[in-house]
Nucleic acid binder design. Structure first.
Lengths: 117, 117
DNA sequence: GTTACCCATCGTCGATCGTCGATTCAATCG
DNA sequence: CGATTGAATCGACGATCGACGATGGGTAAC
């Protein structure tokens, strides 16, 4: 979408006339903006961002029992954050007996990273 | 949100189920996580994300009066969103007479983009 | 069976969010 | 001057968030 970026010197408009005609438009439609914002919102908490950082840098699946002592919050609170990340599609989990292993869903951050670039 | 690496040794462990063997820890310290999460949080709203999208793709400064009609919210609400983006350091504004022109602060998304990579 | 353990969910609380209409502020025009 | 205009701020509202403790659900060991 090519955009005319002429910034014409504005003068106070006459009564009843529109302020200015918009010459800029979003290239991201509403649905994609919603998806991207969902990912961003999930990353908008320091604990969740560090959780994703741990899971990304660690190539594999990490047990919750390892994640809990890393943060100064209770176990239910951490579980809540992990659920947020799951709902956003960023991570997923896998039960193995008593334990739950979390991992970053491959490619789940690609769209957001692509937009950011 | 501490990152202390005191992995309490598990007292009980199911036979043959390895847990807590790998040492995992965030590579992002607390301060950086806070800064990154602040940016992510600011982008965690569809309207704000589209605002940044408009301002980024339009390599110049855009008048608020052009932004308002793009979204189905009131002018005060849009001003509120722009303030959020300003507080996060993503955009800045410049007054010219009656009008205010917004633009993306160069490099303000680089750190976040770098982490996401 | 019983007990111990890990993780998820529930209920609750205060704080923050997104939105609006009304108002205020600042700059310009007549 | 007073009137008008664009943008920011204010005050209020319901909704959502992040945190906790308590509880529930399953699995493994005794």
């Amino acid at each position: 979408m090519s955009i005319d970026m002429e910034l014409a010197p504005k003068t106070k408009r006459a009564a009843g006339e529109p302020c200015c005609v918009p010459v800029v438009y979003p290239e991201v439609d509403r649905d994609r903006a919603l998806r991207l914002a969902t990912v961003a919102k999930a990353l908008g908490d320091p604990i969740r961002l560090q959780l994703v950082d741990v899971l990304r840098k660690h190539a594999g699946k990490v047990c919750v029992c390892e994640l809990v002592p890393l943060f100064d919050v209770s176990q239910p609170t951490l579980s809540h954050h992990l659920k947020k990340l799951r709902d956003a599609g960023i991570v997923d989990s896998e039960r193995q007996g008593l334990w739950a292993y979390y991992y970053v869903v491959p490619g789940s951050l690609d769209d957001f990273g692509g937009w950011l670039r």
